[in-house]
């Protein structure tokens, strides 16, 4: 009710509301949620628990940062949950029973497989002008099947101690694996907001035709975004193995939807051109804090699932509202 009357008010107020509902909005929601859990969820505010949350959101953060690039150019990548399994089983097999010397090659392998699937996703989408939704849905099956075929459905274990050790290391109090995610988010933020390529990514998502007419090859930009997304999945696969010490061809089911949820909660538009790495990071935090807090409160599995879904819907509704607001603003100004 309030929001509607504000929207009909003067443009300046509307613009402020629009901004608050963006990155700041998600930040406010995150703080509110954290305060709620501080009050009602025992142990929520302990250093150990904060470290736990950071460890728990690491995978989704990495995947969501990659997904941000894809969504910014108006694409979607449904294959990440399967591709992470493929990267993990291939790289895991390469390291199985080996020493720390086997790690660099396995990391490279994982990155290459991730980037290669991104290249295929992007290339097919652009070359034949098919929705990335369908192409990556196909890749979801291809990569899952390939992972199963490769392992004969067996779980891979006996990974190098140096790798699993890294999974539990802390750097100045932060889990090392989360530091990797944070570093990737920082690089992505820099690329998207401080480089020509980043500006082109946003421009392509907003108005591809205009970018093309100004002499840029939008197809290449979009494919590169898919490759970046894929490479992020390759990193996530290594992090998964570092944390859990195993790789299985059935891992990662549903990860794509968690990553998309983080990006959308972070204020990105699924039609492209709008969104930010900071928003995505906050979105991943929000989902992680929600899961952690509800578990600490002892909320039942079923209620936890319902609440998580409701939060995603509320975030998307806010996003839709914000978009309508900005259209109205451009109409009035």
């Amino acid at each position: 009710m309030i929001s509607i009357s504000v929207a009909r008010g003067n443009p300046r107020t509307s613009r402020a509301v629009s901004q608050v509902l963006g990155e700041a909005g998600i930040g406010v929601a995150l703080v509110a949620l954290a305060l709620f859990f501080l009050a009602f969820a025992p142990h929520f505010g302990t250093a150990q628990n904060v470290r736990d949350i950071l460890t728990q959101i690491t995978l989704n953060t990495i995947l969501a940062v990659g997904m941000t690039f894809v969504i910014l150019v108006g694409g979607i990548d449904l294959s990440v949950g399967s591709v992470i399994a493929l990267c993990a089983v291939v790289a895991g097999t390469a390291m199985k029973g080996g020493g720390s010397a086997s790690i660099p090659a396995a990391v490279l392998l994982s990155l290459l497989i991730g980037a290669a699937t991104g290249l295929v996703n992007g290339f097919v989408t652009e070359r034949w002008r098919v929705p990335s939704f369908i192409v990556t849905l196909g890749m979801l099956y291809v990569a899952r099947g390939a992972a199963e075929q490769y392992t004969g459905a067996a779980t891979i274990y006996s990974l190098p101690a140096a790798l699993t050790g890294f999974g539990t290391t802390t750097l100045v109090g932060l889990p090392a694996v989360f530091a990797v995610a944070l570093l990737m988010a920082a690089v992505a933020w820099f690329v998207l907001s401080r480089t020509v390529f980043g500006r082109l990514v946003y421009a392509t998502g907003n108005n591809e035709e205009a970018v093309r007419l100004s002499g840029h090859r939008t197809g290449v930009i979009k494919v590169v975004c898919f490759v970046i997304g894929g490479a992020c999945v390759g990193v996530a696969a290594i992090i998964y193995m570092a944390r859990l010490g195993v790789a299985s061809p059935i891992l990662g089911q549903g990860y794509e939807l968690n990553a998309i949820a983080a990006v959308v909660i972070g204020g990105a538009s699924l039609s492209g051109g709008r969104g930010s790495v900071i928003g995505t990071l906050l979105g991943a935090c929000l989902l992680g804090v929600l899961t952690n807090g509800l578990l600490l409160m002892g909320v039942s599995d079923f209620q936890r699932t319902i609440v998580t879904g409701a939060v995603i819907i509320v975030a998307v509704v806010l996003d839709a509202y914000r978009k309508r607001l900005s259209i109205r603003l451009s109409a009035t100004s």
Binding site: P42, T46, D52, T55, L251, L295, L296, D301
Partner: peptide, 25 residues
Amino acid sequence: LDSKTGHWETDEAHTVFGNMLTAHP
């Protein structure tokens, strides 16, 4: 003390049990 689902999966069990242990050290 507690009984929750981990959906048969390693990663989810890690998250769920980690939080369980925080709630019930």
